[in-house]
């Protein structure tokens, strides 16, 4: 299958290893990955902060870039939620009927990484090997936005060598919330402290999730405190096969 990757702006810039892992994983599973260089950002940060006018051209750009893609893979649940929940309304509000139609036609082809693997490709065991103690953080958008349910956990449970431990209060936000972490830095810090306590209590070495945004926030705190715990995007765990590549 040909799979078109929307890496997202912040993964592209800050977490290239996540994108590289998605490519390695999908190729290992026998698929062809395409990466259109015209892509940039879905517009989520602007939209959620109140700059909806600025988000509109970014939606148009996304639609233009991916209109011919058969299957679109996005390793970020919050960007998928932005596209799925807000694009249809934005397109409708723009008064451009053709755009609204294109968005509607595009949505069924948009998959978050774990949706792609479990729903579209019907996989749980992707042949990964990852001999570490890991806990899974359910990001708000994966949990309540996309309703991913146990998809990420089903994939993780089939990873060889993994010691998967449950995170307490898994449905509680880590306090990132995009610009919230800066606009309400202190409250965000209090939320982060609670999340870090839960992560530390698992005894895990690694905290994983399907969103690098939350992980950047959680790791930012864990690293500042020198806890000896790091965060790793789920794609990187699934891409590991022990070959050291």
């Amino acid at each position: 299958m040909q799979i078109t990757l929307f890496i997202t702006c912040y993964n592209d810039t800050l977490f290239p290893e996540t994108g590289i892992s998605v490519v390695r994983l999908l190729e290992r599973l026998g698929h062809e990955v395409v990466f259109p260089l015209a892509q940039t950002c879905c517009g989520q940060m602007h939209y959620n902060t109140g700059y909806q006018q600025e988000a509109l051209p970014l939606m148009r750009q996304f639609v233009e870039t991916f209109r011919n893609a058969e299957t679109i893979c996005i390793p970020s649940s919050s960007c998928v939620a932005m596209i799925r929940d807000h694009y249809p309304k934005m397109a409708e509000a723009s008064g451009d009927a053709a755009l609204a139609e294109e968005v509607a036609a595009l949505l069924p082809r948009v998959f978050e990484l774990t949706e792609l693997l479990t729903d579209k490709l019907g996989l749980e065991d992707v042949g990964a090997y990852y001999p570490h103690r890991v806990t899974y953080h359910a990001s708000c958008h994966s949990l309540r936005g996309l309703q991913l349910g146990d998809r990420p956990l089903r994939l993780l449970r089939k990873v060889r060598g993994i010691d998967l431990v449950e995170l307490a209060n898994i449905d509680q936000c880590c306090g990132f919330g995009g610009t919230f972490a800066v606009k309400n830095g202190e409250v965000s810090a209090a939320m982060l402290a609670e999340k870090m306590r839960c992560v530390e209590n698992t005894g895990a070495e690694i905290c994983t999730a399907v969103d690098n945004s939350c992980l950047m926030h959680i790791f930012g705190g864990l690293h500042r405190q020198r806890t000896g715990i790091r965060t790793v995007h789920l794609a990187e765990i699934l891409a590991s096969d022990g070959s050291g590549a």
Binding site: A181, G185, M216, G220, R224
Partner: peptide
């Protein structure tokens, strides 16, 4: 407000 309590990994 970010770096008050969080480190940030530089851009690779």
């Amino acid at each position: 407000n970010w770096t008050a309590v969080r480190d940030l990994k530089p851009m690779p």
